[in-house]
Design a protein around this nucleic acid. Structure first.
Lengths: 177, 177
DNA sequence: TCAGTATGTATGCCGAGTATGCATCGCCTT
DNA sequence: AAGGCGATGCATACTCGGCATACATACTGA
């Protein structure tokens, strides 16, 4: 989803061709999201098919094909921006399933899992802090705000791990049916 | 990913056929994850292709085909459980792109977006609290732990929204290139 | 008999990755 | 200065996994 609307958002303002879209998109995300080039083009084709963008022919320089936002695309973009992000249905992430399985599989070494997970989150905290610093140095206030969100998330994860590891496990009732 | 390993995890212990897998999986997640039945079968087929499960023929009752975990599947499962969850590469979620676009598109009514988002998170908090209560009532301690994680996440999101809305926006430097 | 449930297959879209093709530009070397 | 060559710009095609819909069929119980 976000790629689709990201493309629309970038096309608002000026027409771009695929390769440019990729670059702008990655720049917007401060290099934290390396987009697959193939996907850009399929996304653009689908957007064209749905009438959200249209090619601004004819092809130029070296086969470059620019796209511009259509009124329908404009509308779709505005609408997407206006609706709140419901996020994934929650509990669909790997970590949840992993935790459940580790709990119910006898030898599932829960404490080890928590410890490893904690280390991974700490590492992520460090990475994010570096990223935030860089974003500020580059004057990318908007990016820094995102990183702040990711930091809060990771802190929440850490807190969660701490809560879990301070539980005493063993004889709790994880009913199967 | 999580579905694949979820299936493996369920098959550890007893052979199951597709429909049963679906039911067990959804029960394990406490009904928070409605799995598509078609996907169960394709997942099972791919797992068979990769040698992680094998059919325990012949077909029974009404075409039922049971699968059992293979030694390789066992190994793959253990390995997955042992490695920490790196999570999505961070910043790949819709909300981040939405925020960026709203920031850089002039009319992007950032405050409205934040307000709507906050409402959505509050709603989620309520839902999760109900869910946690139900999990505890049902003796599903394992599930309650998951919900606790989701709660912490949502609280982090709320805190983030609060931080953002108390910033004074306007003349900040969101460099484009 | 009819509704519903159990069980499975077929098909198609979308996300995402890999591989390939070709033009151009700049640099290095002789 | 010419020729070669690697990097970059730009695009397409192919493949695979996730996920949803739709369909088919058997059984079960009111």
């Amino acid at each position: 989803m976000s790629l689709k609307y990201g493309v629309l958002g970038l096309l608002k303002g000026e027409p771009l061709h695929g390769y440019e879209v990729k670059n702008r998109f990655e720049a917007m995300l401060g290099g934290t999201w390396e987009v697959n080039i193939g996907q850009i083009y399929t996304t653009l084709q689908r957007l064209e098919r749905d009438g959200f963008v249209r090619p601004l022919g004819p092809r130029g320089d070296r086969g470059k094909l620019q796209y511009e936002l259509s009124p329908n695309g404009q509308k779709a973009l505005d609408q997407w921006l206006a609706e709140p992000d419901s996020g994934p249905q929650q509990l669909h992430e790997d970590i949840y399933v992993k935790l459940l399985l580790a709990t119910r599989i006898a030898n599932g070494d829960l404490h080890g899992l928590l410890a490893r997970q904690k280390r991974a989150y700490l590492q992520r905290l460090r990475d994010l802090n570096r990223l935030e610093e860089r974003a500020r140095r580059d004057g990318r206030v908007d990016l820094a705000r995102l990183v702040r969100g990711a930091l809060l998330h990771t802190e929440a994860d850490l807190k969660w791990m701490d809560e879990l590891s301070s539980e005493r496990f063993g004889e709790e009732g994880a009913k199967t049916e």
